[in-house]
Simulated assay, not measured.
Amino acid sequence: MKTKMKQKRKFRTWHVILGIVAAIAGLMMVVFLATGPSRAEVKNLTFSNIDFDKLHDGIYIGHYKGVKDSSRDTSVEVTISSGKIMKINAVGGALAGEKQANEINNGKSLNDLFDSIIERETLQVDVISGATLTSKSYLKAVEDALNKAQSE
């Protein structure tokens, strides 16, 4: 009799555990499907060619705002002096402020992405592996700031 009760209790415990796992998996699937259009939008972003020789000195704020949702919205502050980019800071988005120095993947941070832009004087830089969408949204914000710097 006691062994039968133990078996029933064990059976119920496993049902509860499996139910919780199924609920979590279902919730993850809903989130994945709901963010699909935003991920596709950012993945397909293209960048214009910026003439880095025509940048005007100043501090410019650039933004990227997703059309599908706001999960990848970003803002940057680009400092230009003597016609050259001196500094890029994330001022909006998931990696704004001090978080831009945090490792995203394989020892790379947003600062590494920004340093590549400054060093190579192009937006055609390698994105951070494993953070492609985040990298592209920040690159798009930098592009917006640099377009402003050209038109001033």
Score class of each variant (00 low, 15 high):
56 H>A: 03
13 T>I: 10
96 A>F: 06
87 K>V: 00
19 G>W: 04
5 M>C: 06
82 S>R: 15
1 M>E: 15
129 S>L: 03
8 K>W: 11
45 L>H: 08
73 D>C: 09
24 I>T: 02
83 G>R: 14
15 H>L: 14
30 V>H: 14
21 V>C: 06
94 A>L: 10
35 T>Q: 15
81 S>R: 12
54 K>S: 01
93 G>W: 11
62 G>Q: 08
98 E>S: 12
127 V>E: 11
7 Q>P: 06
44 N>G: 11
108 K>S: 00
67 V>Q: 15
150 Q>T: 01
33 L>V: 08
36 G>E: 15
9 R>C: 04
56 H>D: 04
58 G>K: 02
148 K>R: 04
72 R>T: 03
8 K>D: 07
40 A>Q: 15
68 K>T: 04
142 V>A: 06
4 K>Y: 13
107 G>F: 09
34 A>E: 11
133 L>T: 03
48 S>G: 08
33 L>N: 12
119 E>P: 01
62 G>T: 03
130 G>Q: 09
79 T>V: 00
36 G>K: 15
25 A>H: 05
81 S>K: 13
67 V>A: 14
48 S>D: 13
136 K>Y: 10
81 S>E: 14
120 R>I: 01
40 A>Y: 09
40 A>K: 15
13 T>L: 14
136 K>I: 03
17 I>Q: 11
20 I>K: 03
106 N>Q: 05
127 V>M: 12
44 N>M: 12
139 L>W: 06
151 S>Q: 11
1 M>V: 08
54 K>I: 00
54 K>Y: 02
11 F>L: 12
151 S>F: 05
8 K>F: 10
39 R>S: 05
99 K>W: 07
134 T>R: 13
32 F>R: 12
2 K>W: 14
143 E>D: 07
91 V>K: 08
38 S>M: 07
105 N>V: 05
2 K>Y: 13
24 I>A: 06
2 K>S: 04
143 E>F: 05
81 S>N: 05
141 A>L: 06
112 D>N: 11
6 K>M: 12
69 D>R: 15
135 S>W: 03
41 E>G: 08
124 Q>W: 13
110 L>E: 00
136 K>Q: 12
134 T>C: 09
109 S>P: 07
102 N>Q: 10
55 L>S: 00
96 A>H: 03
44 N>L: 13
129 S>R: 03
137 S>W: 09
70 S>M: 13
116 S>H: 11
109 S>H: 10
31 V>I: 14
67 V>C: 14
67 V>L: 15
8 K>H: 04
